[in-house]
Design a protein around this nucleic acid. Structure first.
Length: 218
DNA sequence: AAAACGGGGGC
DNA sequence: GCCCCAGTTTT
């Protein structure tokens, strides 16, 4: 995989995304420009489907849209509001601890540096980078399951470690592309390059893919 | 009854 | 780097 390839991929995805991207608003897009909502949505989204995350987040933010309001809620209520997302007890604790620390240590604002974000319990590189990109519009490479799967299929990395994928993409592309490539790859993964039964027959990037001819489906 | 949903943290 | 963990929803 070379820089030329990724630039061609970006060009094609820019065109293709109009064809198959679903109009549905993702939870992150909805929470866009509110670093706090991006952050908390990310906690809720762990191991749960996007739609459930969206609904649970909406219910929670309806009740507590800010760190100040959030830290005032009893843990049981937070747990109840996000119940369908699963792991509600752990998530409620993390949400409350983060909210408390935001108020106590940052005056109720979400910090905008990777290191400060990573210092919160429950916040890893994926969440921290998503807060930077979607919450603050700062460059970041956010490797979720979609991005990681696609980069493996394209031969960027041959690892189970998403951090390696993040570093590979950082090295391959200048920062001005980072937000866009993330958006394009996630949409590509959600709509076409699925975990199982990807829609290879309508994919224009199959020459980049190690999967071609192996288990083509549909 | 089993699979799908995806990331963080500990060792 | 590998392995373990948290629960609900869907099939």
């Amino acid at each position: 995989m070379k820089p030329d390839d990724i630039h061609r991929a970006i060009g094609i995805l820019r065109e293709e995304t109009r064809a198959w991207r679903t109009p549905s608003v993702t939870v992150v897009a909805e929470a866009s420009r509110s670093p706090f909502k991006v952050l908390i949505s990310c906690i809720i989204s762990l191991r749960t489907k996007d739609e459930v995350t969206t609904q649970s987040s909406a219910r929670l933010f309806d009740r507590a849209p800010t760190p100040e309001a959030m830290e005032g809620l009893p843990a049981e209520e937070v747990a109840r509001l996000i119940y369908p997302a699963g792991f509600y007890r752990t998530k409620a604790e993390q949400i409350l601890e983060i909210s408390r620390r935001l108020v106590a240590e940052y005056g109720g604002r979400v910090p905008d540096s990777l290191d400060e974000l990573l210092a919160f319990r429950g916040v890893g590189r994926k969440t921290a980078n998503l807060v930077l990109t979607l919450g603050f519009g700062k460059p970041g490479i956010c490797v979720d399951t979609h991005v990681h799967r696609i980069c493996n299929r394209w031969g960027y990395v041959a690892t189970k470690n998403p951090d390696a994928t993040e570093m590979a993409l950082r090295a391959l592309l200048p920062p001005e592309y980072w937000i866009e490539i993330n958006d394009l790859l996630v949409a590509f993964g959600q709509n076409l390059c699925h975990p199982v039964s990807p829609r290879c027959s309508i994919c224009r990037l199959s020459d980049l893919c190690s999967r071609v001819g192996v288990a083509q489906s549909r």
